[in-house]
């Protein structure tokens, strides 16, 4: 890369070592909270409060996991969360890409004006409209149902509309026109050409949506009340309220709640990072 050729000078070697050292220490600092979490989750409660604390558990109690998870119906919370997350994901990916297509590949008057409105709503903190939204869903009799959590996703999400539009704009219009001449309908162009060509960004949107709704706490807290409807986030909050100082159980359950997200991240991180880059870099 640099013009000095094959051999590195002593100064370059030293600076390389410093860079690796800083990045290595940084990595440890980043991973330490997770290591601490795993370590605490496997300790007996008496060792959790031992001073000075142990970084690695001297006694490993795997039984902490089944014990903690059987305190509350976490399987039910898991199913509830999954239903909400999957329906939100379908709604957001499908509707946002339909809307983004109109904002990028079709020509019509008012397009730019309306797109500015999309950008403006992207900046709007959703809590500002929360109280009337709560009252609307109350009128509809949907409080303490999944409705208020799922339905908004089927109106599309401004952030994902923006993301998908930027991606669709990079496709050539000639391809669309060629397909129409070959007898493809307008909607067919979207469905058979644009969408299949946009798999990476669709994957990114799907992952973002999954991540957001999996972690979401604020809206379930406001719209769900009965324990049968709890999501994992609400269940975890309830668990914390009941077993507040049993840190080994709390860490075990918290880790189990995080785990699906970590697994999804490891298998899809290519799309994840591509998507993040696509949002922020521009």
């Amino acid at each position: 890369m640099s013009s000095t050729g094959v051999s590195l000078s002593a100064r370059q070697i030293v600076s390389k070592i410093i860079v690796y050292a800083i990045l290595g220490i940084g990595s440890i600092v980043i991973l330490l909270p997770l290591q601490w979490m795993i370590s605490t989750s496997l300790k007996p409660l008496s060792h959790v409060f031992r001073f000075p604390p142990e970084f690695f558990p001297q006694q490993v109690i795997w039984q902490n996991y089944p014990d903690a998870l059987s305190q509350l119906p976490f399987d039910l919370y898991f199913r509830n969360t999954l239903v909400i997350v999957i329906l939100c994901l379908i709604g957001e990916v499908l509707v946002s890409s339909v809307v983004a297509y109109a904002f990028s590949r079709l020509r019509w008057r008012g397009r730019n004006t309306l797109f500015i409105v999309v950008l403006a709503t992207m900046m709007l903190p959703r809590q500002v409209t929360l109280i009337p939204e709560f009252l609307i869903f109350r009128e509809l009799g949907m409080i303490d149902t999944f409705g208020p959590l799922i339905l908004p996703s089927f109106f599309g999400n401004p952030f994902y509309i923006f993301l998908l539009r930027q991606y669709f704009l990079t496709h050539s219009r000639e391809l669309d026109q060629a397909a129409v001449i070959d007898g493809c309908s307008r909607f067919g162009v979207f469905w058979r050409i644009t969408l299949p060509m946009s798999k990476p960004v669709l994957a990114a949107v799907a992952i973002f949506s999954f991540q957001f709704h999996w972690n979401d706490f604020f809206r379930p807290l406001i719209f769900l009340f009965s324990a049968d409807n709890y999501t994992l986030a609400l269940g975890l909050r309830f668990f914390q309220g009941t077993y507040g100082t049993e840190w080994n159980s709390l860490m075990a359950v918290s880790l189990v709640v995080m785990l699906p997200l970590i697994i999804v991240f490891f298998f899809t991180q290519k799309y994840f990072i591509q998507g993040v880059v696509f949002t922020g870099y521009k």
Partner: peptide
Amino acid sequence: RTIYYLPAILSGVAVAILWQWIFSSDFGL
């Protein structure tokens, strides 16, 4: 990149509980 990015995907109640424990004055990380 994977290591540094990993915490950015995690948020919400589980992370808050983890940090509550990390910040514990006597036994925290």
